[in-house]
Design a protein around this nucleic acid. Structure first.
Lengths: 244, 244
DNA sequence: CGAGCCGTTGAGGGGATTCAAGCTCAGTGG
DNA sequence: CCACTGAGCTTGAATCCCCTCAACGGCTCG
């Protein structure tokens, strides 16, 4: 089985972590996926693969940034607190996305990064990327690609989740969450207070809209914090909302 | 004057565009500011410095991206249109910022980029950065820094301009615009319809709030599309708003 | 079993939208 | 010169959506 799954050059005494990375289900889409097995083997000594439960901080705003992370599974949110003390979620990141890129620029983290679900990460020390970056220009290209992806998502957040009526924003949020399905094709459904921080609405308004969508058959609630979505009715509801 | 302002090596028959870049007021802060004069001279042949009037497109969403731009002066906005046909401004860029980074990844532009004021740009063909990137790792670092800056701004947009009551968002917008003052220390004041697209409010609401701020002495209107801000009263108004 | 968190639902009020009218100002042509 | 026009801005009145305040039920956990 080992000989069947791995190319020959990887058979020669790989570092233990190398096995994990080789088998990592997101390797195709993750940052280091672009590196060959030799480079991979060279770096695993320094890579850690932490796992966190839901609602745990990955890093905090202002912390000096020692590492970037790849999300292997689960969902991470980015939070900010306005001067008035209002907490606002400004972006989500899911499988394959790079978070904490500020580390590569020797800057403190810009947001609070908190897990939404149980999360598997791949922790990559800042210095490691610097070293590899010198040699591997393909890695740098991949890095820039991640940066652009994050920027793209942040802008889409404004257009989708911060525009229009509360019901529209909620439907857009559910649409977004469908991009991160779990094994049983269920989605993670935030608690009402988190919905509020994402859409800038109150928990009561959030609750009312969710209940309404449940009655309309768009959403089937599976507490705690899970739901099944009817894609057809969701699309229908979105169309009706946009044309209204 | 020439000998006094320029280092010796730059005196030796520089490319015409090299003179422009050497004198460029944003060279310290712009992308190519990190390059030495020799590298600068090597590339000017390909660099164009277009000037645009207000409300002119720089590029359009979906266009294949042939170049990135540095903003030398003026303000550029990024627009998106939701599926329902609502136009939303998702970010601004001012002096020294890099726009159209998608070009470096061979992707189509993600937004409509439109000038808010008269704008001076520095147009940098995609291929040029690729070439230089091979040799100059300091350039790549600077590039990543720009990307992070853009991401930072996009997230701040959500937290500042898409959160809370309309009056708070307007005050935050004015605070933002104070970061791009003109020669006479006046700010560019968007027309009401543009404010609407930035803050997701109607022109009427925008007008009411601006009028109110004018009566309170926070803002002095200098049509067309300019204003003087009283920084003390602005800060005061913001404090009162946040604590409310 | 009481405490606390989370979610839901109702009633009332306030802020933003909608609809409508009038204003200023620059450009145009009689 | 001045009426005419249209775009942008302002203001008012009515409506509606969302927030606020409040009460209640389900659930977990000490």
């Amino acid at each position: 089985m080992l000989a069947k799954a791995w190319p020959l050059y990887a058979l020669h005494d790989p570092h233990p972590q190398a096995r994990v990375c080789q088998q990592c289900e997101v390797r195709r889409t993750a940052l280091f996926g672009v590196l060959d097995a030799a480079s991979l083997d060279r770096i695993h000594a320094h890579i850690d693969a932490p796992q966190l439960a839901a609602d745990q901080p990955v890093y905090r705003r202002g912390e000096s940034a020692a590492a970037v992370y790849t999300v292997r599974s689960g969902i991470v949110r980015f939070e900010r607190v306005t001067e008035g003390g209002v907490r606002r979620i400004v972006r989500l990141a899911g499988q394959g996305e790079l978070i904490g890129q500020e580390a590569l620029l020797n800057r403190p983290y810009a947001d609070e990064a908190v897990t939404c679900t149980p999360v598997q990460l791949c922790r990559i020390p800042r210095t490691l990327v610097d070293e590899l970056g010198q040699a591997e220009s393909v890695l740098l290209r991949e890095l820039m690609s991640r940066w652009q992806q994050a920027l793209e998502r942040a802008e889409a957040w404004v257009a989708d989740l911060a525009t229009g009526a509360a019901r529209r924003r909620m439907l857009k949020l559910i649409e977004q969450l469908c991009r991160y399905p779990d094994a049983a094709d269920l989605i993670w459904l935030p608690r009402r207070e988190e919905m509020g921080a994402m859409l800038d609405i109150t928990v009561e308004t959030g609750s009312r809209i969710v209940s309404q969508l449940r009655r309309e058959g768009v959403l089937e609630l599976l507490p705690p914090r899970q739901a099944r979505v009817d894609p057809v009715r969701l699309a229908e509801a979105l169309r009706a909302q946009e044309s209204a």
